[in-house]
């Protein structure tokens, strides 16, 4: 289990992360979402033991990560800017990984290389951007670490390959009960992959929750009554947003969907539709509820 407590990281005068506390349970795929400069990469580097926090700490199963090889042995970090030795082929990089990560699995490496159809003897610098990301993913998965950190690794892949890579990663995580932390500036990239999601904004952790809870805990209702009404009619419901156009109101409600719908039906509405929310909408409304005016794609 990865745990951060009051984690703060500064770069000169800039506070990149401020008082971040979160818990990433074993066996889950944890998504970190946020706009550019939100602090996603910084958090990942802190978890990987690359950066030393100014305040707070990062622990894995209770042990600090920074300068702790025993813990770092269990973590593989795939940075947003990939690193390959100059002129190296995948096989050469595999040698490097094998020298560094004692659990590096050559058999798995060969399987994945052939699965992705990459030539392991070809210099990586001749690969396309997407192929390089595939190569980095293969190497990271072959390291057989307990924790794999992907920093916007899938963002450069075409949709087909992205889904394929995600599938491989998910299978690998499930098979080994490993843990993955994936960052992206786009929530759409993460919503179908992650078990847990966290939103970072300007160095702060705004929200973290189980994806299933997020999706079911918030829903949109379109309702109309024959008589005049306003928001007070729905007193007792946890309303995040209430917009009324004419007789029709669009309401975002948090709570038990079945019970809420039953209550609404009892009010004898002229129209009652329950509309599904995308994860992106859920995030947007949750953030607005917290007082943030924020567009996830911005």
């Amino acid at each position: 289990m990865i745990k951060t407590e009051h984690l703060t990281k500064k770069f000169g005068d800039l506070t990149a992360l401020n008082d971040i506390s979160c818990t990433i349970n074993d066996g889950c795929i944890y998504g970190l979402v946020g706009s550019n400069g939100a602090g996603k990469s910084t958090l990942l580097r802190l978890i990987a033991g690359v950066y030393k926090p100014e305040k707070g700490n990062v622990t894995v199963d209770g042990a600090p990560v920074y300068e702790n090889p025993k813990v770092k042995e269990r973590i593989t970090f795939v940075a947003d800017e990939l690193f390959f030795l100059p002129g190296a082929s995948m096989n050469r990089m595999a040698d490097l990984y094998a020298a560094v990560y004692k659990r590096f699995d050559r058999k798995r490496y060969k399987e994945l290389t052939s699965l992705f159809g990459l030539d392991p003897k070809k210099p990586i610098n001749t690969f396309s951007k997407g192929m390089k990301r595939q190569a980095a993913t293969i190497l990271a998965l072959s390291a057989r670490s307990d924790y794999i950190l992907f920093d916007e690794t899938f963002d450069g892949l075409d949709p087909v390959m992205r889904n394929f890579v995600k599938k491989i990663v998910c299978e690998d995580i499930l098979d080994r009960n490993a843990t993955a932390v994936i960052t992206s500036h786009s929530l759409r990239e993460l919503e179908d992959t992650c078990d847990q999601l966290a939103l970072l904004h300007k160095g702060g952790l705004i929200l973290q929750s189980d994806v299933q809870n997020l999706k079911t805990g918030l829903f949109k209702v379109q309702v109309a009554f024959r008589e005049e009404y306003d928001k007070t009619k729905f007193e007792g419901m946890n309303i995040l947003q209430f917009i009324k156009h004419g007789m029709v109101a669009n309401i975002i409600i948090r709570g038990d969907q079945e019970k809420t719908v039953a209550r609404l039906k009892a009010m004898n509405p002229a129209v009652l539709d329950v509309l599904p929310l995308t994860l992106e909408e859920v995030f947007t409304y949750e953030m607005e509820a917290l007082g943030y005016k924020y567009s996830l794609e911005s």
Binding site: R45, A48, G49, V50, E67, P69, K70, V71, K72, E73, I75, T76, F77, A79, E81, L82, F83, V100, Y101
Partner: peptide
């Protein structure tokens, strides 16, 4: 370089 520094500092060794 940031990417190379990240890679080597993420390795399971003390500095």
């Amino acid at each position: 370089k940031r990417n190379t520094a990240d890679f080597y500092h993420a390795m399971p060794y003390t500095r």
